[in-house]
Simulated assay, not measured.
Amino acid sequence: MDFAGAFQWVNIRFLLDGLLLTLQVAVISVILSIIFGVLLGVLRYWKIPILSKVVGWIIDIIRNLPLLLIIFFTYFALPQMGIHLNIFWAAVAALSVFESAMISEIIRGGLESIPPGQAEAGLATGMTKMQIMRYILMPQVFRDTLPSLVSQLIALIKDTSLATIITLPELTHHAKIIYSLNTDYVVPMFVALAALYFIVCYTLSLFSKQLAKRMATNT
């Protein structure tokens, strides 16, 4: 083990470059996952004939597939179907599809936990289903499911490391390059990876706790 050599500035900078790409993939995937996850969760909750069942089947299929298989599909199979994505967007697409399915179930569960009388009261006052969803149901859902949502998003950040299998130059891939050049750097690189992932994920968890407190005080 050579910590001094492994932690030279050139290696640290290389790791930080990988971390930056990891965060870029994660942020875009988080935004897309929340948008599509909420949409899919609402569609299932509304129980629209045929559509909700089809959406439910698709979500169940995706949730029971390995993320690694979805990554392989977006990068290797989609080009065979005429859809060409570079490594970055293939990783984003795979993560977004997988996490959207997970988040949709969290949203649907949150919606179904709210007493139906609230929606009925909204309809009685002349509100539309969209207005009820926006002003009555979703604020409660986000407040109640925030811990589960954050846990899922933290998992997404860690799952970006799986994209190293398609040579996405993210954090894990850069660490792999460094210790492949010198086997004495294996342990130091794993320590560095653990530290960087911990800092990012723990910071997100602290932020979510503060956000949850603010939401609780405002209700």
Rank of each mutant, 00 (worst) to 15 (best):
F3P: 13
A6L: 08
F7K: 07
V10T: 15
L16R: 08
D17R: 02
D17K: 01
G18Q: 00
L19P: 14
A26Q: 14
V27K: 03
I28K: 07
S29Y: 11
V30W: 13
S33H: 05
F36G: 02
G37Q: 04
R44E: 03
R44L: 02
W46H: 09
I48Q: 02
I48S: 02
P49V: 01
I50S: 01
L51M: 12
S52E: 03
G56P: 10
G56W: 11
I58H: 05
I59H: 12
D60K: 07
I62T: 14
L68W: 10
I71V: 06
T74N: 12
T74S: 13
I83Y: 04
L85A: 08
N86Q: 06
I87C: 01
I87Y: 05
F88G: 03
A90G: 07
V92Y: 10
A94G: 02
F98C: 06
A101F: 10
M102T: 13
I103Y: 02
S104T: 00
I107T: 06
R108V: 01
G109I: 09
L111M: 07
E112V: 03
P115N: 04
Q118K: 02
Q118N: 03
E120S: 05
A121L: 04
A121S: 06
A121N: 03
A121F: 03
G122V: 00
A124V: 01
T125S: 00
T128H: 00
M130F: 05
Q131H: 06
Y135W: 10
L137A: 11
L137R: 05
M138G: 06
Q140W: 10
V141I: 13
F142L: 07
R143I: 01
T145C: 08
T145Q: 10
L146K: 00
L146V: 00
P147V: 09
P147M: 07
V150S: 15
L156M: 11
I157G: 09
K158H: 07
D159T: 13
L162M: 09
A163Q: 15
A163C: 15
A163Y: 14
P169Y: 14
T172F: 07
A175H: 04
I178V: 10
Y179C: 09
V186G: 01
V186H: 01
V186P: 00
V187W: 12
V187Y: 12
P188D: 14
M189I: 14
A192N: 01
A192Q: 02
C201S: 13
Y202N: 08
L204G: 02
F207K: 15
A212N: 06
K213W: 14
K213L: 15
K213P: 13
K213R: 14
R214M: 04
M215K: 11
N218C: 09
